[in-house]
Design a binder for these strands. Sequence first.
DNA 1: TTGCGTCATGTAATAACGTAACACAGATCG
DNA 2: CGATCTGTGTTACGTTATTACATGACGCAA
Lengths: 144, 144
Amino acid sequence: MAHSHDHHHHEARPDLTRNQDLVLRTLNGADAPLSAYDILDRLRDDGLRAPLQVYRALERLIEAGLAHRLESLNAFVCCADAGCHEKASGTAAFAICSKCGRVDEFTDPEVGERLAGWAGVQGFALERTTIELRGVCQGCRTAA
Amino acid sequence: MAHSHDHHHHEARPDLTRNQDLVLRTLNGADAPLSAYDILDRLRDDGLRAPLQVYRALERLIEAGLAHRLESLNAFVCCADAGCHEKASGTAAFAICSKCGRVDEFTDPEVGERLAGWAGVQGFALERTTIELRGVCQGCRTAA
DNA sequence: TTGCGTCATGTAATAACGTAACACAGATCG
DNA sequence: CGATCTGTGTTACGTTATTACATGACGCAA
């Protein structure tokens, strides 16, 4: 059962290395996607010097289902929910606001099923799916 | 009515500039996505020198619905069908083979509707959608 | 004709994103 | 002990994309 300290921040995960933990905390603390170089800049004071240190950590975090890469932005975000990779809840989709840069993660099982269905029919061995919507979010539209 | 010269190649489009036409022909002649620099290399003999010349042409071609950018590859392909942007046939999706690099473009109206539906409910003004599947195509699987 | 706006072009320089290659330290296991 | 595995740190480099500026061709109005 999940313990009840689900307050957006997370305690250090025992299975993360120092660099991975630093990068994950940085993503958690950001309110918009960060590029690898953004992350690096924010972690200079913690001793990180080279892009590769960040890219390696990101690679692990994504494998572990704790972060996502946004392909259309060349940037990274932490997962909205823990374990959003592992669930059968469907492929994660992202709505990215062109104005404010905020990203909203959601899933639509039907969409995942349709795409998986297409792959099945075609004999395409599906490994991963990217779904990204670009547009202007509610907040920015009404604020305009 | 469409004239009947639909033989994969296209005649020069009257509304394209020289650079745009060169880039489109290059994409048409390729059997896999090309990066902007790949395109540039293939067009050196035609006088192109700088990346920007290619990026500018690509930008127009994409606006005009004649080419697509594959975000997860940082590469470009020509459209499978003329006018695949303009139709209500739904958002284009791409299946990209990790082995051979081939790309298959398809649309699933249901998927487009579900995503547009989400956007509607959220008040998100949808401008464009990226759907990219990564995996191994039928041909490469059986050849393995 | 001249002057003006617009659009495509050409060029150089640089920014932003990502990786290869190598060396080292600590853990684990025979 | 040595072998191996994983993470780390560092340099250098490769790839992708943009900024800034200058030029040339065209339509159009004064």
